[in-house]
Design a protein around this nucleic acid. Structure first.
Lengths: 345, 345
DNA sequence: TTGTACGCGTTATCAG
DNA sequence: CTGATAACGCGTACAA
């Protein structure tokens, strides 16, 4: 149109177009403490629209000392668990007029440190660390340092999973959820359990295994067979295959997440087994995309999208007195077709 | 540690610590055209590490006139189709040392315009528009304007789906893929088709319906029954329910994506139908998480993660002479258990 | 209420 | 090769 300047249109251009000063344009275009006369306000807005002005984010960030960006760090955005959390974060971020920078660590915990540092440099307002912590004291110490550096730089940090650091945290009650699941499965008549346990050092996986152990012990059942593997579909498939090869006497298999459970289902079919007749199977998370698998999977529902929303809400609200806040996220046991009532042989 | 300054540590702090000028610190810490003496280089790097310095992104963006951020705009990050594309984008972005700002439009096309404007303001280096275009000339015109504004501001735009704008585009060959699918299904013996068609104005859905129509026509079969609905699990479930209520004589149902197909499977089971005995079913996309549903779903595989990678590669490489580039993405028909060989009654 | 002028942290230009 | 300094675009004390 009438863009004489070579580069993008600046607030100065808008001010000129509206016939006001740069300061007035600034105050008019985004709410400032100071008030602007009605007619000037309108003139600025009209000029901005006419020139298709978009405020220069980096410049605003410089002047204000912070951005409207929050970082979201997940283990793997292709995993529906994290995709669901991300969806909740995005929904809440839209309402709060915040931009989300995504980090996907490909399940390498060290990558969290890199992202944290970069996001600190970007002057991100906050970071949401979604995803299980890992049992590694040295890594945890370095993570603590990075989080502290991030907070010193004026940012907030929210963690979703375990409370291992003095930060705002959504504590996912994996252990009690798994315990309740085990107890309900026991009450259905199952007695010999196996657990497809995920990686040994992943705390979410470990907590769930522990909960199952406790639940079985609480009702006087023997400890389960435990098989470790990746926290993925293939991990579930492989662990189940090993279990079948071992010819262990088992009537109920619990995978520590739904994605693994689906892999386990495939392994059972590969071996010619019929579910749930030959073996019962349960998962964890209640992944939306997997609610229609057949037989319908018994699982523990986690409010994943809501968790993302809550995390972003924590980010946008100040904590009283700088104390870190805790939100407990409880799972809900859903008994479905994959674990019918069982009569012990 | 020895941080005297109240706020975050700046490059000036690093320069002081290293006993060099600000300019030298700048040149040493990030590659510049000009060279820095080896020992000074090291002193700067050591000082930066000691102070845990993280370069101020917004300040760099101001000085350089652009950022290391690319925007990724999807319809719904919780949809595994987009989550897979996002995973590919993230992997390639990590290699290229680019940050990704995520936009999720919640399937409202107008939101793309908002994100585009904001990302332009953020001085994003580029934006990837993932997701089907919509049949709406006015919207398309506004989108074209926003994309042009974005490019005038120095950014690049890549589109994944249909080539509707003069931009770098990954053209997904939905029509030919669907046509090939229909023909292969016909060769298996199916004769009376229904299509769960998705929203009428969504071009991806429409192209796939059109391809199926062409495939059937090419082999002399009658046109399919077409039922529209949402591009989601519930959309597939509802459309299938309506189809069953209509008591139409159909031996093969094609859903225009896998997520809808899974919803349709659930609807069949709700109605007491057995798959694939009572009706055959096919989808589109080959969503990883759904590869283990039973019966295994016939579908058209799209290289979703690779598509994300390619999109980011287009973003990072300059196009010769400013001409826009096209990458054709072909689907691969995968016949699986949900559509066994069929003998017409 | 409006305008002027300075500062934010970094890069790039120009002297040395 | 190194150092001083002028941008970059915006927010905001301060002055009018």
């Amino acid at each position: 149109m009438n863009a004489m300047s070579p580069g993008p249109v600046t607030l100065q251009d808008v001010a000129n177009e509206a016939g006001v000063s740069l300061a007035t344009a600034s105050r008019a275009f985004n709410g400032s403490t100071r008030k602007v006369r009605q007619d000037l306000q309108e003139r600025v807005l009209i000029a901005a629209a006419k020139l298709n002005y978009a405020a220069n984010g980096p410049a605003q960030a410089m002047a204000r000392g912070r951005t409207n960006v929050v970082g979201l760090i997940v283990h793997d955005i292709a995993d529906p668990y994290f995709a669901a959390i991300a969806a909740g974060v995005m929904r809440a971020a839209e309402e709060a007029h915040l931009l989300v920078t995504l980090g996907s660590t490909m399940r390498r915990p060290e990558r969290e440190l890199d992202y944290l540092q970069v996001l600190r440099g970007q002057r991100s307002r906050a970071v949401i660390l979604a995803g299980s912590r890992v049992d590694d004291p040295e890594l945890l110490a370095r993570l603590r340092e990075e989080c502290e550096a991030f907070e010193r730089a004026g940012g907030r940090v929210v963690v979703i999973s375990q409370q291992k650091l003095p930060l705002d945290t959504l504590v996912v009650e994996n252990r009690s959820g798994a315990k309740a699941l085990a107890q309900q499965l026991a009450s259905l008549g199952y007695q010999r359990f196996a657990v497809l346990a995920g990686p040994a050092r992943l705390l979410t996986a470990r907590d769930r295994v522990q909960g199952i152990r406790e639940g079985l012990a609480a009702v006087g059942l023997p400890a389960p067979v435990v098989l470790h593997g990746a926290f993925t579909r293939d991990g579930g498939h492989d662990a189940m295959s090993h279990l079948l090869e071992s010819r262990a006497e088992v009537d109920c298999v619990v995978a520590v997440n739904d994605v693994m459970a689906v892999g386990a289902m495939a392994a059972c079919r590969d071996a010619g087994l019929h579910l749930p007749r030959d073996v019962a199977l349960a998962g964890f998370d209640d992944i939306a995309t997997l609610r229609d698998v057949h037989p319908k999977l018994t699982t523990v529902r986690l409010p994943l999208e809501r968790m993302g929303e809550i995390a972003l809400e924590l980010v946008t609200t100040a904590s009283a007195g700088g104390a870190h806040r805790t939100r407990r996220i409880r799972g809900e046991v859903l008994i479905r077709e994959s674990t019918p009532r069982h009569s012990a042989r």
